[in-house]
Amino acid sequence: MNSVVVKAHPLRCELVRVPIPQPGPDEVLVKVIFCASNPRDWKAPDHLIPGVEINQGNEMSGVVEAVGTNVYEFRKGDRVAAAHPMQTENGTYAEYATAPVNTCFLIPPNISFEEACTIPFSLCTAALGLYQRLKIPFPTSPDNAQIQPPLIVYGGASSIGSFTLKLASLGRFDKLIAVCGSGGEYIESLGIVTDFVDYRKGDVVNDLKAALDGKKCFHAVDAINNGDSWNHLVNVLEPQGSRIAVYLPRLDYTSIPSGISIGITFFGTVHGQPTPFWNHDCAEDVDFAYALFRLVSRWLSQGKILGQPYVLLPNGLKSVEDGLLQLKEGKISASKIIYRVDDTPIGS
């Protein structure tokens, strides 16, 4: 089968022929119909984990081809979307890929393969930050009926940021503030944000203070992690008892005051992978993801959450390199790049 290996310096992709993988005991094998790109797919080989050349794909939708010996919820022919463990073999830039059942969900009839493909990786990461790191009440908790203090999402139009806002809409917040730029129009269309701050105006801290209008803020999500973003946030969070969720464990967060708790959010914890440079045991994230992905199907069928807008590139797997370059060059905002595997030219 065709599989894409991502390389760096310069960023490039190679389409190779490899055997169809077999699912492990707690995995499903998916015939991939659509796969999606995330910023980490180019960042990992470029500087996060330099020198490692593998199939970096982590997000897909398709049809179950086979199931592992311990799998009882899924069967051949099921329409599913799934997230593949990071930095492991059998990634989603391929004709077939594997995924653990705890990060796989059934696609309800009202959701297309295209939309479903935009959901698994980013939504799960957003949920980890919001519920597991910030300790916001989960939608099934009785505490979810209580009005929470304001929540700030920096990078509201990013995949993680927009899913954070969509999940937050399942709760109640005194204010829901999004910091964004060109993607603000999409976030505004969701109708769930009370206040917008445009970082391009260059006065983020004062604009956030104006949006808070004197209200105390204890929770923020930094979905950008650009080196300055969390410094803006700590200037408006309460100096004691606040929490901030961040998403790049290899960055230096020592500028964050000691009175503000840092919740490093690393998608790999849902597959039992340790968080780099963070010694916290996040073993509970494995079961959290299992429960979340079962609810995702229900929420999608009820229209409570939606996927991301997407850009479908031509030529299937042959376009992964172009997609990753667009992400690296910052050409994509408020959209997910996806590929239809069957569009890969014959003979590639």
Rank of each mutant, 00 (worst) to 15 (best):
I160V: 15
V193C: 13
W278F: 10
P85D: 07
P50M: 03
G259T: 06
I20V: 15
Q302A: 14
V221A: 02
Y199R: 13
F121K: 00
P108I: 07
L11C: 05
R298P: 00
S182C: 01
S122F: 04
E185Q: 12
Q148E: 07
L312C: 04
N90I: 03
L295V: 07
A44N: 15
A220K: 11
A81Y: 08
V341G: 07
F293G: 02
S189A: 14
D198I: 08
L325P: 01
N110A: 12
L300S: 06
C217A: 10
I33F: 03
I49G: 00
S159D: 11
E53I: 02
A220G: 12
A168R: 00
S189Y: 13
P109T: 14
I147M: 15
V311E: 06
D213M: 06
D203G: 07
N279A: 12
A211V: 08
V71F: 06
F121Q: 04
S242Y: 09
D252Q: 00
E95D: 09
E238M: 11
R298S: 14
V246M: 12
I147W: 10
L312R: 14
S158D: 01
D41E: 15
D285I: 06
F34I: 13
L292E: 13
L292I: 12
C217K: 04
S255Y: 00
Y290N: 15
I264H: 05
V153Q: 06
V30M: 01
E114R: 10
K135D: 12
C282P: 00
Y310N: 08
L11F: 02
F138L: 14
P345Y: 02
N110T: 14
T275G: 08
S162I: 07
V18E: 13
E188Y: 03
V64D: 09
L130R: 03
S261G: 01
L130E: 04
V179M: 02
P149I: 09
E238C: 12
S122L: 12
D174C: 14
S301H: 12
S255N: 08
T118I: 03
P137Y: 11
S297Y: 00
D285P: 07
D228R: 13
F105V: 07
I136F: 10
R250Y: 14
T275H: 08
R250D: 15
G330M: 01
A289F: 01
P276S: 05
K216V: 13
V18L: 12
K304I: 05
A245H: 00
L29K: 07
G259R: 05
S242W: 08
P345N: 02
G323D: 01
F277G: 03
K318F: 03
L300N: 05
L327H: 01
G191R: 08
P109H: 14
Y339I: 03
E114H: 03
E329S: 11
S141G: 06
K175H: 10
L327V: 02
E321D: 14
S242Q: 09
Q22N: 14
V270N: 00
D213A: 15
P25Y: 01
E321M: 09
Y131S: 10
N70H: 15
L15K: 04
D343N: 13
P50S: 02
P85Y: 09
E114Q: 13
